[in-house]
């Protein structure tokens, strides 16, 4: 039996589709909270919907968990709940024995285009909670991993999106998190760099007390690294397996649900041709 690092139990989160209603509920929640009452947790109010609905799963030591699902299925919201950026409406996330969580959502977030690559390493590192001393110790690793040595003194604004991604990813991995959350962050790196990251991740989770969750829309990526896959559909967890091939088949069939036999055939062929 593997050690459980993160236990997600019945997590639900609702959002509001209408802007004015969103503001109105916001004011109400703020008023309730300032009086010490819990925010409105009950049923949906008009214009609200469940972005996540009763999601439960356990993440074990050494796992690389891929979270897949169509656009808007709640993947990023789930990651924000696990990393503590959002608060949930129902359920709980227990992070057991995990010292450090590092989550990357948008790689560019917090980087300043006018500052050099080196300056941004320090800035980004500080955002992940590293101290100056820790950053100094890890600087060589970051520079080496990012393969950006010759561009370190150029402003990041002149970097290509792939180069920015490499810099940010290298800083994130240097924090040596116990739980590493990667949300579509590797999408822009070139193939060589991606391959290196996958290899590194697989080695990384062999250390004790480490696990990785990554969110993706790229099915091939799932085949490449995941040791486990969960599928989200409209905020619900609909599949949880350690067999990636099986998960992918289920995912594609689920996406094609409700289509006629003929349409399904052509779509499936198209997906297969594109992805493989």
């Amino acid at each position: 039996m593997q050690k459980t690092l993160v236990s997600v139990k019945g997590v639900s989160k609702k959002f509001c589709k209408d802007l004015k209603a969103n503001m109105y509920y916001g004011i109400k929640d703020v008023m309730r909270q300032s009086l010490g009452l819990p925010p409105h947790n009950g049923a949906l109010r008009p214009h609200e919907f469940w972005a996540l609905d009763g999601v439960s799963f356990d993440l074990h030591e050494g796992e690389i968990l891929a979270v897949i699902g169509a656009n808007g299925s709640g993947k990023t919201t789930l990651m924000r709940l696990i990393s503590g950026i959002y608060s949930m409406d129902r359920g709980s996330v227990d992070i057991m024995g995990v010292g450090k969580t590092t989550a990357i959502f948008a790689l560019n977030a917090g980087m300043n285009p006018l500052f050099t690559g080196l300056e941004n390493i320090y800035l980004k590192g500080a955002m992940f909670g590293l101290s100056k001393k820790e950053l100094k110790e890890k600087l060589d690793f970051i520079i080496e991993f990012s393969e950006l040595k010759e561009f370190l003194n150029s402003p990041v604004g002149n970097y290509s999106s792939g180069m920015k991604a490499r810099l940010a990813y290298s800083v994130a991995i240097a924090t040596e998190p116990n739980l590493f959350i990667i949300d579509e962050a590797l999408a822009v790196g070139d193939s060589l760099f991606k391959a290196k990251c996958y290899e590194h991740l697989q080695e990384y989770v062999k250390q004790p007390n480490k696990a990785v969750i990554y969110v993706t829309n790229r099915i091939r990526k799932v085949m490449a690294v995941a040791s486990r896959v969960i599928i989200l559909d409209k905020g619900k967890l609909i599949y949880d397996t350690t067999n990636s091939a099986e998960a992918l088949e289920f995912y594609i069939n689920n996406c094609l649900q409700g289509l006629s036999e003929e349409l399904r055939e052509t779509r499936l062929r198209r997906v297969q041709e594109f992805e493989m």
Binding site: F15, C16, L19, N22, M23, Y25, G26, D29, V30, Q33, S34, P39, I85, Y86, S87
Partner: peptide, 15 residues
């Protein structure tokens, strides 16, 4: 105290 209690909840309402 107010800022700490409510800051997180309002962030999700930010457009």
């Amino acid at each position: 105290t107010f800022f700490r209690a409510t800051g997180k909840r309002v962030l999700e309402r930010l457009v």
